[in-house]
Amino acid sequence: MSPDVEAVAGARRWLAGRARWRWWEIAFWLAAAASFVLLPSRHLILAEIAILGLFALSLDLLLGYVGIVSLGHAAFFGVGAYAAGLMAKHVGGEPLLGFAVAVFAAATVGLATSFLVLRGADLTRLMVTLGVAMLLGEAANQWSSLTGGADGLQGMTVAPLLGLFEFDLFGRTAYGYALVVLFLCFLIARRIVNSPYGLSLRAIRDNPLRAAALGIAVDRRIVGVYTLAAAMAGAAGALLAQTTAFVSLDVFDFNRSADVLLVLVIGGAGYLYGGLIGAVFFKIAADLLSAQTPQYWHFWIGLILVVLVLAGRDRLGERLSALARRARLTGGAP
């Protein structure tokens, strides 16, 4: 039985094509790098976008790839933020060490709580993740000798990054730092989702019963990716703490968990860029809309969400491209 050489080559080509970098991906990251150079006056909001994007990217690994819904992803963001904050306050201001400790702390909490999401339907998982975030938030509130409670964690001193780049008022170091971390985390995530491991995650998302029947150890894969997602959420939390030199209880807030889910749904789950695009859209829309009509900003976001979910992104995309085609046709006509 000699396998058909041509078919093997074809299969290899096809699979390699799936993992290849597309032109628009390269364009996306070039634009991100360009924004650092070209928009110095926007570095503060860009840093916020990068942090939110990283947070949403981490949720995408769960929701988009293995199909786990979470309403408490801020639990890991919060653990990362407090760990980085406490490191800066008590141990030393070196940001990279604090970052590493924060990622480790969030991953540990992720690993410990991953067993809670192995069983159950979406509603169970929503409630369990929500509950975990509430528990941690309340624990941080009660343990005020450590966390500063409702006053927030005061007195953080963050040393210059690599001993070279001082965190400035204009967010230049903050954005550079956040963007580099985001890009590295993205590369890791991209590599993983294109691996056999990543493929098995999608299999679990689509049909856990069949995945197990193929010999995939479903529970272990879920534990692994949940821990990874927690680590990345912790990284986002650490970035926030270090770039703002402040941590307060709202890092565990329900709103934060809900917003990141919103961001991901707006951008689209399951292709890694959804969280990033959603974050850009969400922050800019929030900035513009709340400047004009502060009280109505949630109205517009709510409307967009309802339309997106009801109409479906794919169909909406088709409509828009059909409209664009028609516009081009009529525009080209005399």
């Binding site: 290899r12 699979l15 390699a16 691996s195 056999p196 491991y197 098995s200 894969r221």
Partner: peptide, 10 residues
Amino acid sequence: GGDVWRVVGT
């Protein structure tokens, strides 16, 4: 199946 660092199809 658990390889995280190798691209599918290589």
